[in-house]
Amino acid sequence: MSKYPAPKFSSALLHPKYWGVWFGFGFLFAIVTLLPYKVTYKLGRSLGLLGLKLGKSRAHVARRNLELAFPEMESSEREAIIVENFKNSGLAIFETAMAWVWPDWRVEKHFSYENKQHILDLAEEGRGVLVVCVHALNLELTARAFTSFAPGYGVYRPHNNPAYDFIQHWGRTNNGNQMIDRKDVKGMLRVLRKGERLWYMPDHDYNRNKSVFVPFFAVPDACTTVGSDILISASKCAVVTASGFRTYNNYHLQIDNDISDQFPKKDPVGVATVMNKAVERVILRCIPQWMWLHKRFKTMEDPNVKKGIRYD
């Protein structure tokens, strides 16, 4: 089985230039370990409000994304979503720490599950599963919840800071999940063909290379990866969307039924179109908890049009 090799600890990671990283994560881990969830919740969302005041450019990105995706939505509703989105972004910092250091009993205390038997049944059949998640702000915590009954492989992008990378990889794998390099497509196919689960997030703009332009919400030409077609067509895996949205201090992990029969064969545009519709259904469950701060519509279909022009 192909997996991303764990970064090795060395004395070089203790160099003073990395002390800020070690201190920052240590402080976060101490907060989520020692403080009650209610206190952490308030701290995180207050931090998000501060980010809204200081991050005007990111607020502009979120506003434009919502304008493009939901042109018929009232501006007051969009502004309310932006405020909530920033609050959730602040909380996401603490939720990441929770995902990495909370004991199993504490995670289970805050999670409820829907349709998890479906994942287990597919495993009994020996069928690989492409678990399609979205960039929800509590994604790390959702991935951790899966380890209690169905661990799998996450697509991994190494961090440029080696100390951060060491902590991040440890956090994502110390409870059962494994990582696979985002460029290792053959490894991903091996995972699926062997009947394992691969976490997959096709909801961002990953630039023009290996992408097609298909509808996403109200945008008719959203840059969308063709990776879905490659993985589904070559592995004949099940495709299951999942979400782990939060209502105050409770997280609900919803697992949907297999939709692999909805995808056309050998049709990258058709597959991307179906996948975007599936992703939309997940995001609509809780719009304020998706990552609207990302420039989802930055890449234009016409290569001669400036990238990011929709956000000018």
Score class of each variant (00 low, 15 high):
residue 269 V to E: 14
residue 165 D to C: 05
residue 40 T to Q: 13
residue 6 A to C: 10
residue 38 K to R: 15
residue 74 E to W: 09
residue 103 P to T: 10
residue 24 G to H: 00
residue 121 D to I: 13
residue 233 S to N: 14
residue 9 F to L: 03
residue 255 I to R: 07
residue 78 R to L: 06
residue 32 V to F: 01
residue 109 K to D: 04
residue 284 L to N: 13
residue 83 V to G: 02
residue 198 L to P: 00
residue 195 G to R: 10
residue 214 V to G: 01
residue 217 F to E: 02
residue 17 K to L: 11
residue 165 D to F: 04
residue 53 K to S: 15
residue 60 H to D: 12
residue 5 P to S: 10
residue 109 K to E: 03
residue 211 S to P: 05
residue 269 V to P: 02
residue 93 I to G: 09
residue 47 L to K: 10
residue 239 V to H: 06
residue 143 A to R: 06
residue 163 A to T: 08
residue 85 N to E: 09
residue 69 A to N: 07
residue 46 S to K: 14
residue 58 R to Q: 10
residue 251 Y to D: 07
residue 197 R to H: 12
residue 63 R to M: 13
residue 16 P to A: 14
residue 179 M to L: 12
residue 9 F to I: 03
residue 296 R to L: 11
residue 230 I to L: 09
residue 42 K to E: 10
residue 111 F to V: 07
residue 157 R to F: 01
residue 70 F to P: 03
residue 205 D to L: 04
residue 115 N to Y: 11
residue 145 A to S: 13
residue 90 G to L: 05
residue 234 A to N: 14
residue 161 N to E: 04
residue 18 Y to R: 04
residue 246 R to P: 00
residue 150 A to K: 04
residue 233 S to T: 09
residue 96 T to D: 00
residue 47 L to I: 11
residue 169 H to Y: 15
residue 267 D to A: 08
residue 27 F to R: 00
residue 84 E to M: 12
residue 190 R to C: 02
residue 243 S to H: 08
residue 97 A to Y: 03
residue 270 G to A: 02
residue 159 H to G: 03
residue 57 S to P: 01
residue 209 N to E: 15
residue 259 I to Q: 06
residue 163 A to M: 07
residue 89 S to A: 15
residue 232 I to L: 06
residue 138 N to Q: 12
residue 80 A to R: 08
residue 306 K to A: 15
residue 142 T to A: 04
residue 154 G to D: 08
residue 152 G to H: 04
residue 148 S to Y: 04
residue 149 F to R: 07
residue 266 K to S: 13
residue 296 R to F: 08
residue 104 D to Q: 12
residue 46 S to L: 14
residue 148 S to T: 06
residue 112 S to M: 02
residue 208 R to D: 11
residue 22 W to R: 04
residue 250 N to R: 15
residue 23 F to Q: 08
residue 54 L to H: 07
residue 198 L to Y: 02
residue 121 D to Y: 00
residue 171 G to F: 02
residue 245 F to W: 14
residue 248 Y to G: 08
residue 77 E to Y: 05
residue 41 Y to V: 06
residue 163 A to I: 08
residue 186 K to I: 13
residue 19 W to L: 07
residue 154 G to N: 07
residue 248 Y to S: 01
residue 286 C to F: 13
residue 19 W to E: 03
residue 12 A to C: 00
residue 107 V to I: 11
residue 281 R to Y: 01
residue 272 A to L: 07
residue 156 Y to E: 10
residue 87 K to F: 10
residue 21 V to W: 01
residue 135 H to V: 11
residue 40 T to C: 14
residue 212 V to K: 01
residue 65 N to K: 00
residue 33 T to N: 01
residue 28 L to F: 08
residue 187 G to I: 01
residue 307 K to I: 15
residue 209 N to W: 11
residue 307 K to P: 00
residue 3 K to I: 03
residue 232 I to E: 05
residue 66 L to C: 05
residue 120 L to V: 15
residue 153 Y to V: 10
residue 237 C to V: 09
residue 189 L to K: 01
residue 83 V to A: 13
residue 6 A to H: 13
residue 214 V to R: 06
residue 116 K to G: 09
residue 178 Q to A: 12
residue 252 H to E: 13
residue 288 P to D: 09
residue 311 Y to V: 01
residue 257 N to M: 13
residue 159 H to F: 03
residue 302 D to Q: 10
residue 166 F to D: 03
residue 204 H to F: 12
residue 126 G to Y: 12
residue 223 C to R: 01
residue 39 V to S: 09
residue 255 I to C: 05
residue 270 G to Q: 04
